[in-house]
Computed example of a mutant assay.
Amino acid sequence: MRKMTSVGVKIALALLVGFTVLIEALFVPLGIEQITQVYPETGRVAVPAFVWAVLTLACAQAILVILWRLTALASGDGIFTETAFTWVRAMIGFAYAMAALLAAAWLALAALTWTPPLVMYGLLGAGLLAVAFALVVAVMLGLLRRATALATEMAQVV
C-alpha cells in the first residue's frame, strides 16, 4: 500500500473513531434523557439502553481499530502473516457481536411492544448490514489465505 493511501485511510479511521466516541459521550446520554422526559415509561430501560448503545458502538470502534492495524500491516509485508489472519478473524467476531446486539434490541423492543417502524427497520437493516459485512470479510479472509500461500510459494521459488 502506498504511503499516501495509508495515511489517508488512517486519517479517515481516526475521524470515525472520534465521531463514535462523541456519539457515546454526548448524543447517546442526551437522546436517552430526552426520550425518558417525553415518555416517562421508558425510564426503566434507560440504563440497559445506554449499555446497549455503548457496547454496539464499542464493536464498531474495535472494527475501526483493527482496520487501522491491518492498514499498518498492509503498508509493509506484514499482511501475509498469521497475525493478519488473527486480526481479520477478530473483526468478523466483532461484526457478529454487533449483529447479535442489534437483534437483541429488536427483540427487546418487540417484546415491550415499543415498535416505531423507523427504529425497527433501522435495527433490522443495521443488523443485516453487520452480518453482510462479516460474510464479506470472511470471504476476504479466504482470499488472504490463498494470497499468503501464493506469496510464500513465490518466496521459496525466488
Results as ranks from 00 to 15, higher is better:
143 L>T: 02
149 A>S: 13
117 P>H: 00
128 L>I: 08
98 M>G: 15
63 I>K: 02
100 A>W: 15
15 L>W: 01
128 L>S: 11
124 L>D: 12
26 L>H: 04
46 A>H: 01
128 L>F: 12
22 L>M: 09
71 T>S: 15
155 A>T: 09
97 A>V: 09
63 I>S: 04
144 L>H: 01
89 R>S: 03
2 R>T: 02
101 L>I: 09
23 I>H: 00
38 V>Q: 10
48 P>Q: 15
136 V>M: 12
156 Q>N: 00
15 L>R: 03
91 M>Q: 12
89 R>H: 11
111 A>Q: 09
124 L>K: 06
9 V>S: 09
72 A>N: 13
150 L>T: 06
40 P>R: 02
41 E>R: 00
104 A>C: 13
105 A>T: 08
94 F>H: 07
139 V>W: 03
107 L>M: 04
2 R>S: 10
143 L>R: 03
27 F>C: 04
54 V>Y: 02
36 T>K: 05
120 M>N: 04
79 I>Q: 05
53 A>P: 06
14 A>G: 04
125 G>S: 05
42 T>F: 11
87 W>I: 06
100 A>E: 15
125 G>Q: 01
24 E>M: 02
61 Q>N: 13
50 F>R: 11
55 L>F: 15
152 T>E: 09
48 P>N: 04
91 M>T: 02
28 V>E: 01
128 L>Q: 09
50 F>G: 10
42 T>G: 03
116 P>W: 09
80 F>S: 14
114 W>T: 06
114 W>M: 15
21 V>S: 08
153 E>W: 07
156 Q>T: 04
104 A>W: 05
14 A>I: 05
63 I>D: 07
109 L>M: 08
137 V>M: 08
16 L>I: 02
15 L>G: 01
20 T>Q: 07
59 C>R: 04
69 R>I: 06
44 R>N: 04
37 Q>H: 09
119 V>M: 14
140 M>R: 06
158 V>S: 09
121 Y>S: 14
80 F>Q: 07
112 L>Q: 11
52 W>V: 00
147 A>I: 04
88 V>E: 01
120 M>D: 15
130 A>L: 11
64 L>E: 02
126 A>Q: 11
65 V>W: 11
13 L>Y: 10
142 G>A: 11
111 A>E: 12
155 A>H: 05
115 T>N: 07
47 V>E: 07
144 L>Q: 10
147 A>C: 02
156 Q>C: 05
108 A>I: 10
97 A>S: 14
